[in-house]
Design a protein around this nucleic acid. Sequence first.
DNA 1: TCTTGACCTTACCATCGTGGTAAGCCCCAC
DNA 2: GTGGGGCTTACCACGATGGTAAGGTCAAGA
Lengths: 150, 150
Amino acid sequence: MNIGEAAKASGVSAKMIRYYEQAGLIPQAARRDTGYRYYGDNDVHRLRFIRRARDLGFTVEQIGDLLSLWNDRSRASADVKALALGHVEALRAKVAEIQGMIATLETLAASCHGDDRPDCPIIAGLEEGIGSPLPRPAPRRFGKAGVPAS
Amino acid sequence: MNIGEAAKASGVSAKMIRYYEQAGLIPQAARRDTGYRYYGDNDVHRLRFIRRARDLGFTVEQIGDLLSLWNDRSRASADVKALALGHVEALRAKVAEIQGMIATLETLAASCHGDDRPDCPIIAGLEEGIGSPLPRPAPRRFGKAGVPAS
DNA sequence: TCTTGACCTTACCATCGTGGTAAGCCCCAC
DNA sequence: GTGGGGCTTACCACGATGGTAAGGTCAAGA
């Protein structure tokens, strides 16, 4: 099948299929005489795997590792589990970070009467520094690759 | 003071100060004869405000709105509160999304014995589709601008 | 006075995953 | 044979941030 059909069958856009190929996540697709890529069921299977891993928040790089593990029929399941649990830890850290933001915002919002009057503790909180004067530059351990945007 | 001092005083890197200026978040800085930008205490105050808003996960665009509200001494506190609570909603959605990922991963990991043997339900889950066959393209309502990377 | 090093300037490039666009070729159905 | 849709590559864009390079400036010390 052509790339469009593979896209429909796998849930990965044609655009992203080309990107994954270029990124080395999937092998170079076979080509027809015209230059069109063509795909078989195996390829779609692999793409679906990738799609699901993305839905679970793995980065493209991590998916590369997962694919290696998938293809290595003799690897220990412990290796896979370690990768998965490591990712869970990263996700949890992200959640904690966001929940900290939520808590601060809710505290501020709770003390804001939210009516016609102009004075507002939310603005004041941003001005003055909420709890600590400057929460310090944030370790940013999960920057960029932490969790995909969507 | 020069940009470096303003950066230290505000917790915003010189790089980002220039970026915020270019993005219209802060007005064009005054310049010395040499072309050096210089800043006063007001500017640092504004930068600190921005810094804290970023720490709370507001996007640069939203911070623009916040700054407008800050500068508009006659706006209703309700306007600020609405912005803040809207953001809280977006953050909560993000948390829910990530927690869904965590739940799935933990379910998979729990059923993986995690020893030397190669068979692994985590890989199988990615292959077969975890719960629903294809979780469907994800509404992606909070893409890009949802929550900053770090 | 000259030098040195720290600071400033602008203009680029990279990240990460995704979407868009444009120019041009290909294929199938009518 | 023609039209519309699919395919190709090669670009640009996003958002927020960091990096680098090439060049101007400033202040302190020799």
